[in-house]
């Protein structure tokens, strides 16, 4: 007997309902709550843009988004610049049968616990930490250099994770390129550098952009890394958001800040949308 063909809905409805219920609705709730205000300990539920106005007019608040954008941009650039040559070496210089092994090795620390990873960097960078001890032991330094509790530490902590991630994505991208492109370029008289700039780089750009966007989204929303490594010498957006509920129950402000952060990410998404289409290739 031929089974009756079900429509698409029984298959897609569960995922849609789930996303609506636990993603879209909480988001709407948060948007509504962001329009309330907390004055003293009393919650004023009259809708208004008080929290948003306060964000844009209070320098210490507004500075958080600027810090976040600066740090995240720096992280993204540093990570791409460090990871690309690594991915290239893995794809081109390492013998094919060792590539998989080398790749796994390059992303192995990915599997340390993420909270512990930031903490480990703290041990490396601290005043009495490993790097300072080595450099002073070797006589290269007389005074320890401050590295922990700075923006440098935050960026480094982030870059550590994203270099691994980007090495993986860029490697995958490079391996998908047909060698014919390079041969064609060589036949047309291009040297290595020309081939790279005019052929390889443009072809891997979509992969880089996807990885960079992923880095951007994950880094700009992360609380742990700046909290452990940044030493509260400056606040990034996630820290400011958490402060709203760790110091007092100011959920309206926390909601407003979350919405602002989300809008910033959306703008970044639109900026690189043409590379990010999740349509089937």
């Amino acid at each position: 007997m031929r089974g009756r063909r079900l429509g698409p809905w029984p298959f897609i409805a569960p995922a849609l309902a789930y996303t609506a219920l636990f993603f879209a609705i909480p988001f709407v709730v948060m948007a509504v709550v962001s329009l309330w205000t907390l004055s003293g300990t009393a919650l004023d539920m009259t809708p208004g843009f008080g929290n948003y106005i306060r964000f844009f007019t209070t320098e210490s608040f507004f500075k958080a988004i600027r810090n976040s954008l600066e740090v995240t941009a720096l992280v993204t650039i540093v990570s791409v610049v460090l990871a690309y040559p690594m991915a290239w070496i893995l794809a081109e210089k390492v013998p094919v049968r060792w590539q998989r092994m080398a790749l796994i090795l390059a992303i192995l620390p990915f599997w340390t616990s993420y909270v512990v990873r930031s903490y480990a960097w703290l041990l490396v960078l601290a005043e009495k930490g490993v790097i300072n001890s080595w450099l002073m032991g070797l006589g290269l330094l007389n005074e320890p250099v401050q590295m922990a509790n700075t923006r440098f530490a935050t960026v480094l902590g982030f870059a550590h994770f994203f270099v691994m991630l980007l090495t993986l994505t860029i490697y995958a991208n490079l391996k998908q390129l047909s060698p014919n492109y390079r041969r064609a370029a060589a036949d047309l008289g291009a040297n290595g550098i020309q081939t790279f700039i005019h052929v390889i780089l443009p072809l891997t750009l979509p992969g880089i952009m996807v990885g960079a966007f992923l880095t951007f989204v994950l880094a700009i929303g992360d609380y742990i890394t700046p909290q452990i490594l940044g030493g509260s010498n400056e606040l990034l957006m996630p820290q400011l958001i958490m402060l709203q509920i760790l110091r007092k129950p100011d959920f309206p402000m926390a909601s407003a800040l979350s919405i602002i952060l989300m809008i910033v990410v959306s703008i970044a998404y639109l900026a690189c949308a043409r590379w990010l289409k999740l349509e089937r290739a």
Binding site: D222, L261, V265, S266
Partner: peptide, 10 residues
């Protein structure tokens, strides 16, 4: 494309 923090907060 939404940060975990925002999903959690919502």
């Amino acid at each position: 494309s939404v940060s975990y923090l925002i999903i959690g907060m919502g």
